[in-house]
């Protein structure tokens, strides 16, 4: 009895969704290890990060937006636009650094514009970011209808560069960048006033305003963060694919939203953890590797499993919210 009380005190209910996400990750990964000999290797874990580094970065940006109670449907399209801008500017002979700055700048600017429209014209985030998604995809095709492969040598070298960890596990630089983004975002969300205001706006915008917090800055700011993360995610994706293409990352916004929700962040805003979103991405990645390990199972099972997980988690969240109410 007393141990029960103790454990419930140590894991307050607010961590329950994240704990559940982590449990699902452990279970799916465990299932893989039991079923396939080579599954439980360090490299498979490393590959989860390698194959999903861009998704992690996008999920970071989306978490900011969803924490305020908003949504950003443009992330996949902005990522695609970034691959396109990167590929075309690099091929045009721009120095890689300038190219990278251009990409990140345009992503953040697009996010800023969407945020301003959402906040100042009170148009629903859903519609504004949907328009942003169309705009970004359209701009891709305006640059080129075809896929543009990246030939710039320094960029290719960076893409193929590998970090070898003890145990012969190799990681790409993308993973390092993604993890750095996660750390930076954790810092911003938990240790700066901007980050806490993001949570505050999601909890109750009117209360936050009465408390004298800079709510407008937070509401617009999250879309800038998301735009920046989408652009950076797009850069990582172009490192992964070594090309720019308007049809890259189609539907990725849905995967990202699913990862964030599975990671325990409430779409109503105010509740959730960044690490949850990261674990959410890892769950999606594990499901994908499981299905590819199985071989006989078709890839569309991934979608069905993700849908089922999504359902399980929203019902779980719903029950928690009801219990609190």
């Amino acid at each position: 009895m007393s141990t029960l009380a103790l454990s419930s005190a140590r894991f307050p209910q607010r961590f329950l969704p994240v704990v559940a996400t982590f449990a699902v990750f452990v279970v799916t990964f465990g299932a893989g290890s039991v079923r396939y000999e080579n599954f439980a290797s360090g490299q498979v874990v490393a590959n989860l990060f390698v194959d999903n580094s861009f998704l992690i970065v996008l999920a970071v940006g989306m978490t900011f937006v969803i924490l305020t109670g908003g949504i950003d449907l443009s992330v996949g399209a902005v990522a695609a636009l970034s691959t396109m801008i990167a590929a075309s500017t690099l091929n045009a002979g721009w120095p890689p650094l300038l190219s990278v700055i251009t990409v990140l700048g345009s992503g953040a600017t697009l996010g800023l514009l969407m945020g301003l429209v959402i906040h100042h014209f009170e148009v629903q985030p859903f519609i504004v970011t949907l328009a942003g998604m169309f705009l970004a995809r359209g701009l891709c095709f305006l640059i080129s209808v075809e896929s543009v492969s990246i030939t710039e040598p320094a960029f290719r070298e960076f893409a193929s560069g590998a970090i070898t960890l003890p145990g012969d596990i190799t990681l790409t630089y993308s993973v390092v960048i993604a993890l750095a983004v996660v750390l930076a975002a954790l810092y911003v969300l938990h240790l700066t006033r901007f980050g806490r205001t993001v949570y505050a706006v999601g909890g109750s915008e009117s209360s936050a305003r009465l408390m004298g917090l800079a709510t407008s800055r937070a509401k617009v700011g999250v879309y800038v963060v998301s735009g920046f993360c989408s652009a950076l995610g797009g850069l990582l994706f172009s490192l992964y694919m070594l090309s720019g293409y308007g049809l890259h990352a189609v539907g990725m916004e849905l995967d990202v939203i699913a990862a964030v929700v599975i990671g325990g962040t409430l779409l109503a805003g105010g509740t959730g953890y960044l690490l949850g979103s990261v674990v959410g991405v890892l769950v999606l990645g594990t499901v994908q590797s499981l299905i590819s390990f199985e071989g006989t199972l078709s890839s569309w099972w991934t979608k069905i499993v993700i849908g089922a997980l999504l359902l399980a988690f929203i019902v779980l969240q719903r029950l928690i919210v009801r219990r609190q109410a």
Binding site: V261, W301, T302, G307
Partner: peptide
């Protein structure tokens, strides 16, 4: 969104 994701699958 649940059905949007799973439905196509």
């Amino acid at each position: 969104l649940v059905l949007m994701t799973a439905g196509r699958g």
